[in-house]
Amino acid sequence: MNARQFDALRDLIYKTLGLHYEDSKLDFMDKRVEKRLSALGMDKVDDYVFHLRFLDNDGVEMQALANLITTNETYMFREFDQLQAFADHCLPEAIERREQSGRRRLRIWSAGCSSGEEPYTLAIVLREIMHDADEWDLQIVATDIDEVRLEMARRAVYGPYAVREVPDDYAAKHLVPVGRDEFKIHPDTAKLVEIRHLNLSSRHEMRTLRDFDFVFCRNVLIYFDDVSRKTVVDHFYNSLNPGGFLYLGHSESVSRISAAFKIRRLGAHLVYCKEN
């Protein structure tokens, strides 16, 4: 794959899936496209791009490519730099806003929470950053469509792989060893998380979720088509309070999906929020 082909493919992926790929990802993309070429019995990248652009009407091939270029693995403290932006800049701002409104309540929605690694990560961050956490009404609503995953989330027990990125001092406080090499989330931390079944495509259910300061929906929307994705993000907009923040995966672009959100630079990070 040469630079021109990578450029064309990258544009198309951005338009269809909303994912950004930097120049340095050429080799990465090349290898994955090779797999698709082989699966489709094609041998030219140009033919593949043409296929994606004009012959993939129901998006099946784009999804097949999406599955190769995105990682589905889930573990705690994934995408650390986003969490850092959240903890260092956005959380203090949200706390300040709530203080000024006179109500010490903070709500976070982890949409597409799978087996719970993300909401429990957020719970740990909240308890670590907010020294007066006990004086606040803190709630992390964790939703997913998959009942099997939700059951795992309710158990709140994780193996060494899932907890490998948890900073040591946090692990000592918030992870309780169980069995041979597993860890349960400490009850004082786990109690911040409420786990619920929810289909993101179910618009009437989605409209009932309101008064959130943060929505996290990372690496979930890439599996939706354009119109459905837009609809989900519109509901996120509705669910957020003015000034509230939306986090998608670090290579997913909020602005590609909806221009209703405002982009801001906080420190070294770009964040998206609902206008105040």
Binding site: V227, K230, D234
Partner: peptide, 15 residues
């Protein structure tokens, strides 16, 4: 005047 609503209208028309 709301960008959010304008977007929603276009999404509706697209459906």
């Amino acid at each position: 005047t709301s960008r959010f609503v304008r977007d929603a209208i276009f999404t509706a028309l697209a459906r």
